[in-house]
Simulated scan of single mutants.
Amino acid sequence: MIKFLSIFFLAVFADQISKYFIDSNMSPGQRIAIREGVLELTYLRNPGAVLGLLAESKYLLLVIQLAVVFLLLLIYYYYLPKNNYIDLFLVLLLSGAAGNIIDRIRLGYVIDFIDLQIWPVFNLADVFITLGTLGMIIIFWKEL
Rank of each mutant, 00 (worst) to 15 (best):
D23N: 13
F140R: 04
A125I: 02
A11C: 14
I34Y: 07
Y78D: 07
E36H: 14
I114N: 03
K3D: 01
L41W: 15
I114A: 04
L73Y: 13
D112T: 07
L116E: 11
S18T: 13
M26R: 02
Y85R: 01
G29C: 05
L131F: 15
Y77E: 10
I139E: 01
G132F: 01
R31I: 15
N46K: 06
I139H: 06
E143N: 09
A33S: 15
A67D: 04
K3W: 07
S27D: 13
L51E: 07
R45G: 03
P28G: 10
T130G: 05
Y79P: 00
I118W: 13
G96T: 09
W141D: 03
L71A: 14
G108S: 09
A125K: 00
L90A: 02
Y79S: 09
L92F: 15
I32W: 05
S27T: 13
Q65H: 12
G52N: 09
G96P: 03
G29P: 01
D15F: 06
V69R: 00
A14Y: 12
F13K: 05
Y109N: 02
V127A: 07
L44D: 01
V63Q: 08
S18A: 15
I139C: 03
I34V: 14
D23W: 11
L131R: 03
Y109C: 02
N25K: 12
N84D: 13
G99I: 02
E36L: 10
K142W: 12
L134T: 11
Y85V: 00
Q30R: 03
E40L: 09
F122G: 04
F70Y: 12
A98W: 00
D23R: 14
T42G: 02
G52V: 03
G37K: 07
P28M: 08
L10T: 15
M1R: 04
F140G: 09
L134I: 15
R106Q: 11
K19E: 12
K3R: 10
I17V: 15
I64W: 10
G108R: 05
I22G: 02
L92A: 08
G135L: 04
A14M: 15
L54F: 15
S27M: 14
Y43G: 00
I101G: 02
L80T: 01
S57N: 14
L74Q: 11
W119M: 05
L144Y: 14
M136N: 08
I75P: 01
V121F: 10
N46I: 04
G135Q: 04
I64M: 14
F113T: 01
P120N: 11
S18H: 09
P28C: 09
F128H: 01
F89K: 00
K3P: 00
Q117A: 07
N83H: 07
I118L: 13
I137E: 07
Y76I: 03
N123H: 10
F21P: 07
Q16D: 11
K58Y: 11
P47L: 06
D112L: 04
L41R: 06
L94A: 08
